[in-house]
Design a protein around this nucleic acid. Sequence first.
DNA 1: CTCTGATTTCGACGACAATCGAAATGAACG
DNA 2: CGTTCATTTCGATTGTCGTCGAAATCAGAG
Lengths: 94, 94
Amino acid sequence: MIKTELTEILQALGDPVRLAIVSELAGGETRACGSFTHLGVSHSTLSHHFKVLREAGVIETHPEGSARLNTLRRERLDARYPGLLDSVLAAGKA
Amino acid sequence: MIKTELTEILQALGDPVRLAIVSELAGGETRACGSFTHLGVSHSTLSHHFKVLREAGVIETHPEGSARLNTLRRERLDARYPGLLDSVLAAGKA
DNA sequence: CTCTGATTTCGACGACAATCGAAATGAACG
DNA sequence: CGTTCATTTCGATTGTCGTCGAAATCAGAG
């Protein structure tokens, strides 16, 4: 299965936990990894999902003190795939 | 993993073969299942992918003579998830 | 330097997904 | 009804995915 960049993004967003993460990051606020425990998965699983989103180019992580803050790479996604993120987020909110 | 309707659609579109099928159906033409052999997978695999797309509500299949014609359920998708299909198709074309 | 809190990596495991070939189904047609 | 063509289902295999707990890493505080 030859995975393209687009299918990788769609696949990354196609998991409920990851879609919830992206949805919560969509407000623009940067959030630490540890603030997602309410999603009901363990820390190691969360870390795995962050890695998938990072490798798909959906989020980026930069260390800030002892924690790591995650932000949505909205500009990059909007430039490369116009409207995609917005429609997914709008659909997820409804 | 509690799969929602949206994540099911995103996951369905997150496979290269299925995205290619949807892309080719986007012209509006209805195509028989058998006309996708150029994607490099067997008939049974094609049938499986059509089933996934059908169950996700992305396409519909109606028998026409001895063959089955597939069409994209564009109106339904556009109504439920405005802009989603268009942005995915535009991204896939670029 | 050690302790502490936050995150990642490491195996491991069960579930699911993509794929195939072969067999079954179904619909026209002689 | 039997043949033929198109599609689906079946059974099997192989690989990937989501998940966990435990161990490793890493950055700051004492």
